[in-house]
Design a binder for these strands. Structure first.
Lengths: 361, 361
DNA sequence: CTGTTAGCGCATTCAT
DNA sequence: ATGAATGCGCTAACAG
């Protein structure tokens, strides 16, 4: 027999019924030790490697797979250590629940620029989907998932009806960051933001209040800063949380030509992520400015930036692995029928070496 | 009816047989346009979202899943852009083949330090497994996969019997790198290597030839350097391809106290990866040395290091995405029954700003 | 403790 | 062009 042996082959070889053989592997019922051994022996002689996953899955109605929608190409999504650490927590947690993580790029813009949902999301089998970077309004991915009745956990995004949510207190974090700067004596700051929504280009934002901000972290962090005691004298939107983008923004913001009146120039730059902030620091140095003597810089996330050398960013740390674990627990709750859950995780201000009092005029 | 509708529900609603309804969705047979529409209409009224993946999978014997074994925790594996870019090519290629990628951490050392294969690898359903960072001798993961008769594609590792392989010409690349340095006038170099095998600590290697090197990239690159016209005056093994590890190594290598006779000190540092090389550059600067005036540095991989500023590493670029695609094609070949394949991808020397003539004595 | 029976949802024969 | 029948591999009820 050249085909892969099945449970019934093993049962026949061991001289027992299929259901008994099944019990010998699953242990989900009473079985004589002797019988069990006989079945395993038969399995060994036949080279049977245990119950076939497909059969078990069909029977149980479970795929054992959680689709993780990263929302972009892998290399773009995972250039950011934030995603990776979160994914780490998620994978570990789900692995213990015997659930595998399937990566789904999520959405691609085709030639005409139209958004196309990844075919994997349309057809591939999964028990739950996790949108780690949230959903936007009228998100076509959410529609697909709803049509397929696949329950959804959203990380760090707009709460969507019927979806579980794991968020962080980024408003609170940004408020603390602002207070820290205010306390040091800063009054005027520039803001380097994350993208407002999908497919944005870099550029100045004249009036942030007039913009439609589809991406929750961006909106929360921006609003928290606007509501602080600091005056935001310039806002620059970046297309992605990348060092280069932060550096580009800083080069423009710190250009002396932009501030004919030194009394109006910002004394600190608030970046919405650590990668952006790192770019700001590098660009500032490149321009001959000292951080924090000439300009203070703050970020958000609390990721390790080993190449920043001896500096450490003043930032707000978010519990990335815990966020991944929380996503995993939300998945579990859904699968256990415990329904939709919502969690907001705390963040913490971490003062580093990139902030200090503003320079004297 | 509160349970999810099945194909037979749709068939009944449309007044056709199940097999006809199946054809209406798969298109794998002749069907009247009218009937097809009727079935789809019935599906719409019932809220049927297309054939259930589980049923189809059991029928076809295919999971539609490729297990990608990353060999460590996600955050450690993916701190390296090399893995990520490769994964990107792999995911894109497989996505077009309607195959999902399941992430498998692979192996963990338990409390006692014993290696334990990830349970997902033991039980989770997958059509093919990809070991992106190769296999070692007597790799327990390979044993598990062989027992389960899951075909295997190995990236960048030792060829294992019965497994497909996608490798790069890193020997050739390192030979070119060495020639480049030799041509500039260098004679003595220090070598900062990748780990020799799993679970290694950082440290000097007295005699590399005496060491058992379980990891192919490390071995290839090391041997190619040893076989070059350069004299390797010091070899330092790092525990991982990280900026910090490179910096640690460089601090020791460049310590003047180590080289009482300046005629013997290395004039260039050869790192086995770009991340290591970047760490070397940063540490050298920190120690007040100019690169390349005081010491030349080369790396390997050709990844983007935006935070290196205006410098660009002299390195060998490997086609990372193409490697991922090649892994995907190897998977496809296996699935199509085209059998085991082996590919070696070319690499290319890219001269940057971190190499120059050695300093005059 | 073990065997019998009955599906899980679907795609594929083979008839008609 | 459509329908009836079969089985992919397994597990859960139930009967013994």
């Amino acid at each position: 027999m050249s085909r892969r042996p099945t449970l019934s082959d093993v049962a026949r070889e061991a001289g027992v019924s299929v259901s008994t053989a099944s019990l010998a592997f699953s242990g989900a019922g009473p079985i004589a030790e002797q019988t069990r051994e006989r079945v395993h022996a038969a399995a060994a002689t036949l080279g049977y490697a245990g119950p076939n996953a497909l059969g078990r899955q069909l029977r149980s109605g479970r795929h054992g797979i959680v689709g993780v929608v990263i929302g972009d190409k892998v290399k773009r999504s995972f250039r950011d250590p934030v995603s990776i650490q979160m994914l780490d927590g998620l994978v570990s947690t789900l692995s213990e629940l015997r659930l595998g993580v399937m990566l789904i790029p999520g959405m691609e813009s085709d030639e005409k620029g139209a958004m196309k949902v990844d075919p994997l999301l349309e057809t591939s089998g999964m028990d739950v989907a996790v949108l780690i970077w949230g959903a936007h309004v009228d998100d076509p991915r959410l529609e697909v998932l709803r049509r397929r009745s696949i329950p959804v956990v959203i990380g760090e995004g707009n709460a969507a009806p019927g979806c579980s949510l794991v968020a962080i207190d980024d408003r609170g974090g940004f408020a603390e960051l602002a207070e820290h700067l205010y306390g040091l004596g800063h009054r005027r700051v520039a803001n380097v933001t994350l993208p407002f929504r999908m497919g944005r280009k870099a550029g100045w934002i004249e009036n942030p209040r007039d913009e439609e901000i589809d991406w929750t972290p961006t909106r929360n962090r921006l609003e928290a800063l606007e509501e602080s005691r600091l005056e935001v004298v310039a806002t620059y939107e970046t297309p992605a949380s990348l060092v280069e983008s932060g550096a580009d923004a800083a080069r423009l913001i710190l250009d002396p030509a932009r501030w004919p009146d030194p009394a109006k120039r910002p004394t600190a730059i608030v970046a919405q992520s650590d990668l952006l902030a790192a770019g700001v620091v590098l660009a500032a140095r490149e321009m001959g400015l000292r951080v924090p003597e000439d300009v203070s810089v703050v970020g958000f996330d609390g990721v390790d930036l080993p190449w920043l050398g001896t500096d450490s960013l003043t930032t707000v740390t978010q519990p990335l692995e815990a966020k991944g674990e929380a996503l995993g627990h939300a998945v579990d709750a859904l699968l256990q029928g415990r329904g939709v859950t919502e969690v907001v995780l705390p963040v913490e201000l971490r003062v580093g070496t990139t902030t200090g009092p503003p320079p004297a005029l």
